[in-house]
Simulated scan of single mutants.
Amino acid sequence: MKAKHFVGVMACLLAGLTLLGGCAEKKPVGAAGGEAIEKTLKAAEQDARTGNEQKAIQEINAAEKALIEEDKKKPYVQGYKSWTGEDAKAKADTDAIKELDHARKDAKGNLAGDAADEIKKAIKDVEVKEKN
């Protein structure tokens, strides 16, 4: 009889801990990191619009490195997946890095206006990541 009682208590304890663990609050990816990345990207966009492609490339590289480092330091938890089965933060991260690659290529090809447009898209992707 004591063994059944012990097993029942342990099962309830395990169920309660599982429930509490599943309801734990998700911590957002560092807002300060996201703001710094956005600031760097806005500076890169401004430099690309004024024709300073070399400085824009340096800022693009710095922002991309910061995005990757932020994900290593504070990986985002598996949250809500859309109906496509893709995590919103992961998609925003991937899209931002793709846009930065396009911007870098445009800046190297002296297409400053196109680079600025790609950077603007990357800024929106970083904002989406921070919201989710």
Rank of each mutant, 00 (worst) to 15 (best):
K2H: 03
K2V: 03
H5R: 09
V7C: 02
G8R: 09
G8F: 03
G8M: 09
M10N: 02
M10Y: 02
A11N: 02
C12H: 02
L13D: 01
L19I: 04
L19P: 00
G22F: 01
C23N: 06
A24T: 09
E25A: 12
P28W: 04
G30D: 13
G30P: 05
G30A: 10
G34K: 10
A36V: 08
I37R: 13
I37Q: 11
I37P: 06
K39Q: 11
K39W: 03
K39A: 12
K39D: 08
T40L: 06
L41S: 06
L41R: 11
R49Y: 02
T50S: 08
G51Y: 07
N52Y: 06
E53D: 12
E53A: 11
A56C: 04
I57P: 04
E64D: 14
L67H: 05
L67K: 09
E69Y: 05
E69M: 11
D71G: 15
P75K: 12
Y76T: 14
V77T: 13
Q78I: 10
Q78F: 08
Y80G: 03
T84D: 12
T84A: 10
G85I: 09
A90S: 15
A90V: 09
K91V: 15
A92E: 03
D93Q: 15
T94D: 10
A96H: 11
I97C: 11
K98V: 15
E99G: 00
E99N: 14
H102G: 08
A103E: 01
D106K: 07
N110G: 03
L111E: 05
A112G: 10
A112P: 00
A112F: 01
G113M: 01
D114L: 04
A115K: 01
D117R: 01
D117V: 00
D117F: 01
E118T: 02
I119T: 04
I119C: 04
K120A: 11
K120N: 05
A122R: 08
K124A: 14
K124I: 07
D125P: 03
V126K: 11
K129S: 07
K131R: 13
N132S: 11
N132Y: 15
